[in-house]
Nucleic acid binder design. Structure first.
Lengths: 135, 135
DNA sequence: TATTGTTATACTCTATAACTATA
DNA sequence: TATAGTTATAGAGTATAACAATA
């Protein structure tokens, strides 16, 4: 358990460094990561991000101000606003993913077998991965 | 990598839930966790927690206000204040550890062999664990 | 009536810069 | 001069409560 905590701490450091490198917070990067799966209403974002809806307003405000996302009115429900990645938002999202993929050298050093084994064990403990929600 | 992010997200949720259950934030719990290894000057805390020293002031302020830690003047350097866990601080720290140990059912369901294997792989990727710093 | 998104408010975390007491 | 801790300030994340528009 202590080892798990340590691993998570290291990973969080990796993530914070990668996102800071493109001028984002981890929450902002996480939001972009969710939107990589397609547009989502504010309310859905709040559910996936496991935070209050009022929080998403500010989060999207800041991302929108940087031109990374865009609010679009829903064609079917005038209460709803869909949040969409802009072209620059997509680019930035992939940039963070690229940084994360190359940061942790130890992961690349694993043999194919070991990597599969790690995947199996993590899935057994933490369940299936669903979207791209990073944390 | 997506799987790693997912696992970390789940683990962070576990940690946030466990700490919230005793009325702490993850940063506060993390601070207590570090102090479990013994008293530490404000400056050392900042180094271990990887944050600015000014930050630690507020962090310790709030923990002290709740009676979980205590500031003690260093006998050898009058500039230094050592932060020490109080009895209640120790109790709370162990409570969080207990909650974390029992929360993730999948971990307990692993065989002894699998657990050793997971330990080996995580160490290979993220390095040795040092203290009890959770994150 | 219920739901979506927003605003107002408050607390925590975080960093930078300036300050004090001490070394 | 340099270091330890604090304070002032600011921005970001977070939650609760109240609100307008829409369903």
């Amino acid at each position: 358990m202590d080892l798990l905590s340590h691993a998570f701490g290291v990973h969080y450091g990796d993530l914070a460094a990668a996102t800071a490198q493109v001028g984002l917070t981890t929450s902002q990067a996480n939001t972009l990561s969710v939107l990589r799966g397609g547009p989502a209403p504010m309310r859905s974002l709040a559910a996936v991000l496991a935070c209050d809806a009022s929080n998403v307003t500010g989060l999207v405000d800041r991302l929108e101000k940087r031109g990374l996302v865009r609010r679009e009115p829903s064609p079917v429900d005038r209460r709803v606003k869909n949040v969409v990645l802009t072209a620059e938002g997509e680019r930035t999202t992939e940039e963070v993913r690229g940084l994360m993929a190359t940061t942790r050298a130890g992961l690349g050093a694993l043999s194919g077998e070991d990597r599969e084994e790690l995947l199996r064990l993590l899935t057994a403990v933490f369940g299936e991965r669903s979207g791209g929600a990073a944390g």
